[in-house]
Design a protein around this nucleic acid. Structure first.
Lengths: 235, 235
DNA sequence: AGAGATCGTATTGTATGCGATTATTGATGA
DNA sequence: TCATCAATAATCGCATACAATACGATCTCT
């Protein structure tokens, strides 16, 4: 009836739904994802759910183990570092591509966005995080490079997952002032400075947010300190 | 009987087979890929073929149009530029990550590889192209960054496809001397110089190889000049 | 009581089937 | 002769069906 009859669209919908659910932590890292129940929940067959899992696995949002099904990814700290490193490289490229090539309209849009960020800075609900993420996506879009955009989006969503696991509770991720400086450098056409700013900005995000591992993966890691404090000797 | 009984492995095999076939141009850009016949050819059902198509589509090696099925991707020149730009950014990151961190064994491996390239330089069969591609993959592997490796591989295979379409017939892609210089900079731990060399190396690849569009997408473009020369007036 | 074997159930991997959409070919009329 | 159109065949999107595997509970034997 009201269902989308367009082919391939339902597959896309399933993918997007799961993606959002993971990023917003409705589905928590490590959580099991049975094909059956999810398909039922979403009103599609396992086929489409599997298809979505495939894409999400490639993007690093779900883990896919043979004969054991899918679960929300739980990146290790090492993987987290890798992702941030790549993201820095990609976004530096964004900055370089954009330096001196921003139209007036684009610059205005970015500044409007930053003003929004500033407004949302007080309450640190998910709003603030979402906005600072979108700033980077907007920049990537403005390069006009579709592949670059895709990679930045991918890295960005993985970062969300990572911060959900290892991030400090109330780290407001991106400092608004850093975004402002960046825009200024882009306007001035100073590619080197823009790249440098972006690099340090993302570096700062890491050190601000990604230091304290909280919430551990499995019993082992959780209990290890207790065992030690009792003089036990776990394998 | 001899078939892989391991689950998920056949899916992987289909993906790899198609991927290789595309990169080696056994399947030419633009070629239609019917699920049925390919599955039959490979001895699997359409399901697995579709799965492979999905991955390949994400990687930009096949195009997937709704209700029209899959075909080998035929990147536009603009997309080609995008891919090369991103690749440059990624490999620059590779160079920076590796500078001053190469073990003796790694350096030796790279030099051995370059010697092989030199040897194969005379005959410019697919051997030479494969080797110069593998050099870059090897570098990415040595960073130990799995995501970076994946992106470089992806960009690299897309570049193969692009060069197959737009590349000059006998451009030996990578100059061996440039690879040598790069290794030297990495050894010396000069990150800036290594990044710079990599950047210009890839830039050089583009200008050397990617200038003349040859081989057109469809009947239209192929026949247009003939039509004109005969005074015909196609729409 | 505890370790190990056995069976049942849940879930995955892959194939197949059905309806829908698109391409193609042959027929018809201007 | 060329364009238009209808019927047929090919192909796709998705759901379902079936086989294989893994997990858990019970049962047995020591």
């Amino acid at each position: 009836m009201g269902e989308p009859r367009t082919p391939g669209l339902r597959a896309q919908s399933v993918y997007r739904a799961l993606r959002r659910a993971i990023i917003e932590q409705a589905l928590k890292p490590g959580m099991k994802l049975p094909e059956d129940s999810i398909g039922e929940q979403l009103g599609v067959s396992r086929t489409l759910v599997r298809e979505a899992f495939g894409r999400l696995a490639i993007e690093g949002l779900v883990e896919l183990k043979p004969n054991r099904g899918a679960s929300v990814a739980y990146p290790t700290l090492e993987e987290a570092r890798d992702v941030f490193d790549v993201r820095r490289g990609l976004e530096r490229l964004v900055a370089e591509s954009l330096a001196g090539r921003l139209t007036a309209a684009q610059a205005a849009e970015l500044e409007a966005h930053v003003r929004q960020e500033e407004k949302a800075h007080g309450q640190d609900g998910p709003e603030s995080i979402r906005l600072s993420g979108e700033f980077h996506i907007k920049l990537a879009e403005m390069t006009g490079n579709a592949l670059l955009l895709r990679y930045v989006q991918e890295a960005s969503s993985r970062c969300s997952l990572i911060l959900a696991i290892y991030g400090r509770p109330h780290s407001s991720e991106c400092a608004v002032s850093e975004h402002r400086q960046l825009i200024e450098a882009l306007r001035a056409g100073d590619a080197a400075r823009a790249a440098h700013l972006m690099d340090h900005h993302l570096q700062a995000v890491v050190t601000r947010a990604l230091l304290t591992p909280r919430g551990e993966r499995d019993i082992h890691e959780v209990l290890a300190p207790y065992a030690l404090s009792e003089g036990l000797n776990p394998p």
